[in-house]
């Protein structure tokens, strides 16, 4: 079914997400103002620089509208910087993000750019074998608290993907590899609203 999916376009690789979604036949909107969130079926918060996006979320009045969106039960997915911004707990980020998902995230956890890496990774619930995961100055998920649960880990047990009902947080970048399975998976995770949908402020 064709869905209307928003990609938060304050900074980062929103174009790459848009292109994957369009290749799957969905309608995509780049979101730069809170009012644009209103009639979406799902939302992606892309990779980028988390400190930059956190500032732009605040200066553009996105913080509460994004919290309301997450609470409305519609699928919401943060990749890399987006995962940092969804987390209730983040170390080393000097601004609050959306703070809605029950995970604790550690920024730049693997070191500097020379330590950025690729690896094959199995994601629970995803059919068709492992995905090629690209980690760029990536965060790791230090802890998941119920109802959040880990859905992918590296060999050493490091959590790199988690799900909590309609929320998905992933440390790596499925939008860069030409494999659209995670985007398809994401659009199936919507649950009925956890609490009555809040009218989104304009």
């Amino acid at each position: 079914m064709k869905k209307r999916v928003g990609v938060l376009a304050l900074q980062g690789d929103f174009r790459e997400h848009r292109e994957v979604l369009e290749s799957l036949g969905h309608e995509v909107r780049e979101i730069r103002k809170p009012a644009q969130l209103e009639d979406l079926d799902a939302l992606i918060i892309p990779g980028g620089e988390s400190t930059t996006i956190a500032r732009l979320i605040i200066s553009n009045g996105f913080q509460q509208p994004l919290r309301d969106f997450c609470a409305s039960g519609r699928p919401t997915w943060g990749t890399c910087a987006g995962a940092i911004l969804l987390a209730k707990e983040v170390d080393n980020l000097d601004r609050p993000g959306i703070e809605t998902m029950h995970i604790a995230v550690h920024r730049n956890a693997f070191g500097r750019q020379v330590d950025s890496f690729e690896a094959d990774l199995n994601v629970r619930g995803l059919e068709g074998g492992p995905v090629r995961a690209v980690f760029i100055r990536a965060p790791l998920i230090q802890r998941v608290d119920p109802p959040a649960e880990a859905i992918a880990t590296l060999d050493d047990g490091t959590i790199v993907a988690a799900r909590e009902e309609n929320l998905l947080a992933i440390s790596f970048h499925p939008e860069l590899t030409g494999d659209s399975r995670l985007h398809e998976f994401f659009l199936t995770i919507g649950t009925p609203a956890r609490e009555p949908a809040v009218e989104v402020a304009g």
Binding site: A9, Q11, G12, D13, F14, R15, G48, F117, E118, V134
Partner: peptide
């Protein structure tokens, strides 16, 4: 695997719009 073309180009992709 570190230092691949995807991770090199990828960091620049994350800087976009910035």
């Amino acid at each position: 695997t570190t230092g691949t073309w995807a991770v090199k180009v990828g960091l620049a992709q994350m800087l976009k719009g910035g």
